[in-house]
Amino acid sequence: MKRHLAIAGLATLVALGAAAQGKGPGKDVYEKTCALCHGPGLAGAPKYGNKADWAARLKAGTAKLYTSALKGTANGMPGKGGNLALSDAEVKAAVDYLVASVGEAKAAAAPAPAKAVPAPTAAKAAPAPAAAAPVAVVPAPVAPPVPRAASAAPGAVATVDPNAFNRLLAAPGKRNAPPAEDGIHDAANPGTHALQPPLTALAGMPPLGAGNRVNWVSSLDGGKIRPRWDRDDATAAAVVMDLNIVREVKGSMPDVVYPHKQHTEWLDCSNCHPQIFIPQKGANQISMASIMLGQKCGVCHGKVAFPVSECRLCHSKKKDAAPAAALAGAKP
């Protein structure tokens, strides 16, 4: 009995060894991206080499597995394992590699030390062998870099399409970049690839022209998101106060309507009063300059709440024409 076990164990080792001998991109991708969850089986992920985890999934067919891996699943598998920098071929190669891992375990369990068979599946999707390796330095070959500083050499812009030049705005395809490509996350950090890519959360929400490119207020109103009001109690309801404050502004812009309602759906009174705003009409000096420097409304607007580019969301009340005309007429 012991001998059988020993043989089985040896066979497993041999088989694993064969698998470990670099089956190209599948293995690389697996180790860099998939292993974080599929290694230990985090969050219900089917474990590498665990036959029981994979049996039902394999029955559904490899095509279904490819789709799940590429698009993600409702069970928590993010599309492409959260690393959108991967090509479809690389993802499929990683799926093949994972599938092969259970094929091997089966072969090894049989008393005859079957020669590891998984090679053909893993090897067939090999069109991008080197692509998995440079994940650590991933943002390298992105299209023409948008020069941030005005001092950047003008000759460096090697673009043919005149409309492609835009110094300040991210191109539509470059918004809501996944963590590994956003320029602040370290792509060499394994945890980076486990983080949720923004688009998987923000995709279905009503759009806005700035900020996260979603309208948080209408997302909440429309029930697209249900953020908790209390850390532990999922049923706690916000203490909402419905009171509009109109601020008449000096220039030609429409007056500002400040809605307490939308603010108290997210915030507590004490977040703003009395530290940022004295709770008394006319007691607060507010200017666009101070907002843009992060004071008053700018404590949130321009950092997490919609930025100042969305003028009309605040400046929303048309000035009365009559008093203005009367004022003009009164002038000598």
Binding site: P179, I184, H185, L195, Q196, P198, A201, L202, N212, W216, I225, P227, R228, W229, D230, R231, A238, E265, W266, L267, D268, S270, N271, C300, V304
Partner: peptide, 20 residues
């Protein structure tokens, strides 16, 4: 790296900025 958007989907501002 603290992602506001990720936490905002799950909790209102008040939970962290007032309670915590």
């Amino acid at each position: 790296v603290f992602p506001h958007w990720f936490h905002r989907v799950r909790f209102r501002c008040k939970v962290c900025h007032s309670d915590l």
